[in-house]
Amino acid sequence: MEEKYKRMFSRVKASPEKIQEVIIMTEKRRPRKIVRSLLVTAVIMALAVLTAMGANAASGGELFAKIVSYTTYTAEDGTEVAEMEVELDDKMLEGNTTGSFEIVQGEDGKAVMTYTDENGKKVTQEIDLEDADDITGQLQEKADKK
């Protein structure tokens, strides 16, 4: 019976499409433990975007006057999203004092952040998370207090 049973069940297989569906779902999704790193990323990205916009971000310490809100959630397509709303030091970014950051992290370790200012103007930039450690420092500490 054992041999017949094995032969019989060897033909019972899951639909390859159903297995592939799960694989595709997970390719778009990272484990929950990355959410913490997104907070760090948000701060780094803010720095990167401000630099890109010509702000004097190099002065460090007072990059954010105030973090208004910070939320993370899983989007409908399974991607982890972090949103941070900040009130910027207006000495650094004249005219645009409030904006929001949306960070979407991909499986390849890169994240794309979109900064939208209060007038609806968007700036998008990609960052490699591997570079994160070099520039967090006191910015992370500031974010942790929020």
């Binding site: 069940f9 019972v12 297989k13 899951a14 639909s15 159903k18 297995i19 569906e21 799960v22 694989i23």
Partner: peptide, 27 residues
């Protein structure tokens, strides 16, 4: 998933005796 998907499916099928439920359980 590729290596053990079939095993999970067969166990699930033995549990519930229904292919659609077994596929849901597998996923």
């Amino acid at each position: 998933a590729k290596e053990y998907g079939d095993t999970v499916y067969r166990v699930a099928l033995n549990c519930c005796k229904n292919a659609a439920d077994a596929e849901d359980i597998m996923q």
